[in-house]
């Protein structure tokens, strides 16, 4: 069994490396147009955002509507680091991510004892505070935004951080701590009775999610030159939530598939701007009514799912938890 897992992991790693070099070659040869490159970046950013939100909302069951706030903190801290302080990209990215993670702890520790709707509204309020404060700080450009950020995020960094996010969060979920988080989602009181420190795990999930939202923000800032407070408004938080919900709350592969699908669809329907949002919103309602668990539910798209009959040698941990 373990040998099989190792083999599978090696196969995935090899496929990823091949994919990386293929795209790298494509960019260098000019086969991938700048428009497609932008969408590659957006896909990466959306995957990071959706997977990290999924850790909070999907796996730990805490509805957070403030993901854009953490993204904004990551983007602005990283942007200030490179533009104003002249630091290298990696350091700036880590600083942004840590700042976002720290804010996650700061916000999460007092608010995570709130239930469902109240937490949603508190996190939504937090994101609005971040946006409002950024508008009022002239040092970072106020409402006009921070401009002149160098485009330091290459395909290499994008790829590395996207893969790193997915792998780290997946491993976290499959660890003892991840199990505890899932227990909190399934039944908080029962989890507490079994000795799970629910507050600790909720804050932990929140901090990790915020950290990676910060990573996404830093990548976004260092690809698009400009960041504005209004980019990180409520709409952005909703966007991420839509992706996570479409993919299935509690499914990492679902989030990845949905992030790719939604980003590509957004690019394809760009000319429809408002109509596109109408379609999204209707889809959101229809999905919630007809398939509230989203595309994948809490299952993962594993190789077993496609090539073997389900249920016999399911290596994935997620399939067992959805009883």
């Amino acid at each position: 069994m373990r040998k099989q897992r190792l083999k599978l992991n090696l196969c995935v790693a090899a496929a990823l490396v091949i994919f990386y070099f293929a795209v790298d070659f494509g960019i260098k040869q000019g086969m991938i147009t700048p428009f497609q490159q932008i969408n590659l970046v957006l896909i990466g950013v959306n995957i990071i955002l959706a997977v990290s939100l999924n850790l909070i909302t999907g796996f730990t069951g805490q509805l957070a509507l403030g993901h854009a706030g953490f993204m904004a903190i990551g983007a602005y801290v990283a942007g200030v680091m490179t533009v104003k302080l002249g630091q290298p990209f990696l350091l700036a990215l880590l600083a942004g991510a840590c700042a976002a993670g720290f804010m996650g702890i700061l916000l999460g520790a007092p608010t995570l004892r709130l239930k469902g709707d109240y937490l949603a509204i508190a996190t939504l309020g937090f994101a609005e505070i971040v946006r409002g404060v950024l508008i009022n700080i002239d040092y970072v450009g106020g409402a006009a935004g921070l401009i002149g950020i160098p485009q330091l995020c290459t395909w290499f960094w994008l790829f590395v951080w996207t893969v790193l996010t997915v792998v780290l969060i997946k491993n976290f979920i499959n660890s003892t701590h991840g199990r505890a988080c899932i227990a909190v989602r399934e039944n908080e009181i029962a989890a507490e009775a079994m000795g799970v420190n629910t507050t600790l795990y909720k804050v932990m999930a929140f901090a990790i999610g915020a950290f990676f939202a910060g990573v996404a923000g830093a990548i976004y800032a260092h690809y698009f030159y400009v960041i504005q407070p209004n980019t990180f408004g409520l709409m952005k938080s909703f966007d991420v939530l839509v992706i996570a919900v479409f993919g299935g709350l509690g499914s990492i592969t679902g989030s990845i598939i949905a992030a790719i699908f939604v980003t590509v669809a957004t690019a394809a329907l760009q000319d429809l701007s408002v109509l596109r949002m109408v379609i999204y919103a209707s889809l959101l309602i229809i999905v919630m009514i007809l398939r509230p668990q989203g595309l994948m539910g809490t299952k993962e798209a594993t190789f077993d799912l496609f090539f073997r009959k389900r249920g016999e040698s399911h290596g994935s941990a997620q399939s067992k938890q959805s009883v």
């Binding site: 709707d117 909703f238 309602i285």
Partner: peptide, 17 residues
């Protein structure tokens, strides 16, 4: 309740747009 809340957000977005 999560599903209903997301539906409410969807309804809001739908009417806005």
């Amino acid at each position: 309740r999560l599903a209903v809340l997301i539906t409410a957000i969807g309804a809001s977005l739908l009417l806005q747009n």
